[in-house]
Amino acid sequence: MTVTTEELKALSADLVVDARGVSCPGPILAAKKAIGGLAVGGVMEVQATDSGTLKDIPAWSKKMGHDYLGAFDEAGCIKLYLRKTK
């Protein structure tokens, strides 16, 4: 499920994970650590500057069974969104 950038921007994340400035595998480690604190159905926003996360967070979400919603770049900060499903 991928939503439009406008819809993503309108989303209010229940949890924001700051992985800016961190290189691989930092962002997915941060995402894994943080998602435990999110309720099922909640939306997590991962902020990153490593361009690899654009592929990595979707792959991580798929493997973990969460719904990846999409991403956009805001002034060099990549914001990725996913919904916790279990």
């Binding site: 691989c24 595998p25 997915i28 480690l29 995402a31 894994k32 792959a59 991580w60 493997k63 973990m64």
Partner: peptide, 11 residues
């Protein structure tokens, strides 16, 4: 160790 950590992070 990067691969190992990544795999563990993916469950």
């Amino acid at each position: 160790f990067v691969i190992a950590n990544g795999a563990a992070a993916m469950g």
